[in-house]
């Protein structure tokens, strides 16, 4: 089935892209990897006059680590998986991107497109939440930064203004002694959206107690979420069986899932508990 007609523009710089975006306003659809955007147009859920492709802006593909890790919005999942800079600073995000769809999807889909689509079932998003990442946003008035926690606003909605573009994701270098874990659990097949995705970072002190923890959850609320109550329960505690069980229950309580082919709401909540518990147990065991 063909797409509705539109005009295609692929400027070579971010400044030009921002100009097109400002000028076209609501009539323009920003395209990154194009996966979701093409599907939305094919289903006639989007009928833009103009498609603004970011594919020709080299600067947006860059992945760099000087201090913090910066991943350009147009870096593909596959590039992130392969990147030595990512492996050195935040392998958790590489692991998460490695679970997105299938190889060709990872070759086409971008991290920027993934988070801007703000699908609750995003696999990288929980990892970004657990890594305390920030969105680097370019707009007519320059650049601003926003913690990912504030970036996801509601079902398929972000904090991006109509004249802004996501330029990069910035991930701070984790503190020494940080353990991180990721799991994408699907109830059906190996290529499916998650029943639940759990990503966590736990900073342990010398005695092995949890100094602080960050837990990101996907597919269990209208957006990717953090399990803040569970994080607070863990802070300053030894990772005992009770602490882990309490935190796992608190994480499950933080969810507000809906039901679909990957599981009922109740099942997703229960799987949140199981997988938060399992990942914490695994961290405690090392």
């Amino acid at each position: 089935m063909s797409l509705p007609r539109f005009e295609y523009r692929a400027p070579g710089t971010l400044a030009d892209a921002l100009a097109v975006r400002r000028e076209a306003g609501e009539d323009a659809l920003v395209m990154a990897g194009g996966l979701t955007t093409v599907i939305l147009m094919r289903e006639r859920l989007a009928r833009p006059r103009l498609v603004l492709s970011l594919s020709e802006i080299e600067a947006l593909r860059r992945i760099e680590a000087n201090g913090a890790l910066s991943i350009g919005a147009m870096a593909t999942h596959a590039e992130i998986v392969r990147s030595p800079a990512v492996a050195a600073v935040a392998p958790l995000i590489a692991e998460a991107c490695g679970h997105v769809g299938s190889p060709a999807i990872r070759n086409m889909g971008t991290l920027g497109g993934n988070v801007c689509h703000a699908d609750s079932a995003s696999d990288p998003a929980p990892a970004l939440l657990a890594l305390d990442a920030e969105a680097v946003i370019a707009g007519p008035r320059g650049e601003r930064r926003l913690p990912m926690t504030g970036f996801f606003q509601g079902t398929l909605t972000t904090a991006l203004g109509g004249d802004e573009l996501l330029a990069a994701i910035r991930i701070p270098r984790p503190a020494a002694g940080t353990a991180s874990r990721f799991v994408k659990y699907t109830a059906t097949t190996a290529e499916a959206f998650a029943t639940v995705t759990v990503a966590m970072t736990v900073v342990k002190d010398a005695a092995g107690a949890c100094r602080s923890a960050r837990i990101g959850l996907g597919s269990v609320a209208s957006t990717p979420i953090r399990a803040t109550a569970a994080e607070s329960l863990l802070a300053g505690r030894r990772l005992t069986r009770e602490a882990i069980d309490e935190a796992a229950r608190a994480a499950a309580d933080a969810t507000s899932p809906s039901s679909n082919n990957q599981g009922s709401a109740g099942y997703r909540r229960e799987m949140t508990r199981v997988w938060v518990r399992r990942l914490l147990e695994d961290i405690a065991a090392r």
């Binding site: 295609y8 692929a10 395209m31 194009g34 996966l35 093409v38 599907i39 498609v51 492709s53 594919s55 596959a78 190889p103 060709a104 999807i105 070759n107 086409m108």
Partner: peptide, 13 residues
């Protein structure tokens, strides 16, 4: 040389 989905790729790209 990179495997992509031609159903989701604009020819213009």
């Amino acid at each position: 040389g990179v495997a992509v989905r031609s159903c989701l790729m604009l020819a213009a790209r």
